[in-house]
Computed example of a mutant assay.
Amino acid sequence: MLEQANGVLQVNGLHVKIKTEQGAHSLIEDIGFELKQGQVLGLVGESGSGKSITCMSLLQLLDRKQTSVEGSIRLNGRELNGLKAEEMRRIRGKEIAYIMQNPMSAFTPVYTIGEQFTETIRTHTSLSKKQALELAAAAMTDMNLTNPSKLMKLYPFQLSGGMLQRVMIAISMCLRPAVVIADEPTTALDVVNQLQVLRQLDRLRTECGTSILLISHDLGVISELADDVSVMQKGRIVETANVFELFDRPRHPYTKQLLDARLTINERP
């Protein structure tokens, strides 16, 4: 697979601050990384380390009245930071997709799954409603969701959290975006469906050249899919390395703590 010389997603000097009565407070500081075509970069760290804030800033989803985002976010050479909301809406879902951490809050409760799925497809393509439904059904089948035509007539509350998670991943993947940001994509899934999701993400990157930013607290998921790993602590990236090097020879004390915290199969609670 050929890699783009300058990378698909380039992030440099990213700072996010929240405005408070006491002044601006930094949430993340000096974040920088590059995603090449077909590369999977794992982003790990404990809760509150800044992983999800980093995702939201890349997608320009933070409240601009409450936060400020400084630095450069370039997608295929185009600067995203500071784009108008309407321009970002055209990019999100088609060129850069987002798999949210909480599937229950990702869907509007008053519309069926099919209505929300096909709306995403038709917003970014010239497909007819029938073609959009066919594409949606195929994407859901790929995610091991049986009887997609029936599922698309249901409302979000009629599906389990795990099923909603797989529907959300299917929506994110069906338009074959250049970049997928996956924030804890396997959290709500059992082991069988976790494996299915990882296989589909790997297929997306191998067949379509999609780059993936994979955020997870599950180091097993990271070791299975990621090429490189960045470790976040208190809003900063403290270490970046090849996945094998990071697991075998971690350099930063915080990385060592994360790896030591893993339970092995032989350990007793």
Results as ranks from 00 to 15, higher is better:
L2F: 13
N6A: 10
N6K: 14
G7E: 04
V8D: 11
Q10F: 00
V11L: 08
N12A: 02
N12S: 06
V16I: 13
K17T: 14
L27S: 07
E29P: 11
L35M: 10
L35V: 13
K36P: 04
Q39S: 06
L43G: 07
G45P: 08
E46V: 10
K51A: 04
C55N: 10
S57Y: 13
S57N: 15
L58M: 11
L59G: 04
S68D: 12
V69K: 07
L75M: 09
R78I: 03
L83P: 15
K84F: 13
E86V: 11
E86F: 05
M88Q: 14
M88H: 13
M88R: 13
I91A: 09
K94P: 07
Y98A: 05
Y98N: 04
I99S: 11
Q101N: 09
N102E: 15
P103S: 05
M104Y: 00
V110I: 10
E115V: 02
Q116M: 02
F117T: 00
E119I: 00
E119D: 09
I121H: 01
I121A: 00
I121Q: 02
T123F: 03
T123P: 01
H124T: 11
S126C: 08
L127N: 02
K129P: 03
K129R: 12
A132W: 02
L133Q: 09
A136L: 08
A137S: 11
A138L: 09
M140K: 03
N147M: 03
N147G: 04
S149Y: 06
K150S: 07
K153C: 06
F157G: 00
L159Q: 03
S160I: 07
S160T: 11
L164Q: 02
Q165N: 04
V167I: 12
I169E: 02
I171L: 01
M173R: 06
L175Y: 02
R176A: 15
V179G: 10
E184G: 06
P185R: 04
T187P: 07
L195S: 14
R199K: 14
Q200K: 13
L201F: 14
R203V: 09
L204I: 05
R205G: 15
T206R: 12
T206H: 09
C208V: 04
C208M: 07
G209K: 14
H217P: 15
I222M: 09
E224M: 14
E224H: 13
D227S: 02
V229I: 13
V231P: 06
Q233N: 14
K234I: 01
R236A: 12
D248F: 10
R251E: 15
R251P: 14
P253E: 11
T255G: 14
A261D: 06
A261C: 06
R262D: 00
L263P: 10
T264L: 09
T264W: 07
R268F: 15
